[in-house]
Amino acid sequence: MIEVSELRKSYGEKGRSIIAVDGLSFRIRPGTVFGLLGPNGAGKTTTIRVMTTLSDPSGGACSVAGFDVTRDPASIKERIGVVPQENNLDRELSAYENLLIYGLLHRVTGLRKKISEVLSVVELDESRERVVQDFSGGMKRRLLLARALLTDPEVLFLDEPTIGLDPQIRRHFWNVIRKIGMDGRTVVMTTHYIEEAEALCDMVGIMSKGKMVAFDTVKGLKKLVGEYVVDTITEDGRLEQFMCCDRREADSVASGLQGRLTIRRSSLEDVFVKLTGARI
């Protein structure tokens, strides 16, 4: 269970501070794959930093797996795995050494075997002795996921885990994440690939300017803004969209329009654009 209530986080000194998270509240049940979406700078990474005990909250409360982030961070650290947005691997160490240090820090039992296991999950077996400096961007992302999986964490935090991955490996990541969700473990992930959230997440939260503007299942969110969309190109070449709650409404909207138009089911992307007023 993850509980966030009235969470606030600001950076910098008083007076000139930036408010990154501004009164955020939500709850995630165990076994949920939760997707946190939002435009750049919405506060997703900041929220994850607070949930993973890396940043102290400026106000409000946050608990992960039943433990409070300020009162009992050690118990949270024992139960979570984190893939950060920014790579924090040791560049001058090999893949194996990176996992070794991490495993020792987390007192993983049967470490050697476990390292081989996670390396093969992300298909990096052959690069285990190579220095991370020589890895491609995607390989680093894969190693980060492998590292986060090393402890079999109860809650997994993934901040844009699939950025820079080729389509095959991305699909493979999806399977790994889905499987973790099916094991009854919790996943909190951020992504700018909306189809990824649509494919994976049981629950989706959309953040904008430090606040949660929507929090529901993908289906629920679509219902919220309308299940059908009428796209039409205006005379001056702009795309105009009408969100409609059902097919009948869509048809009637369409009949009143001229020129080229299409009626389609809404996507999570439509929801996102409508709620945040921004493109991705």
């Binding site: 005990t53 890396l54 050690a74 650290k77 950060p84 924090n88 991490y102 820090l105 987390h106």
Partner: peptide, 8 residues
Amino acid sequence: QVFVLAPV
């Protein structure tokens, strides 16, 4: 971060 996020 790796140290800070570890239970040590």
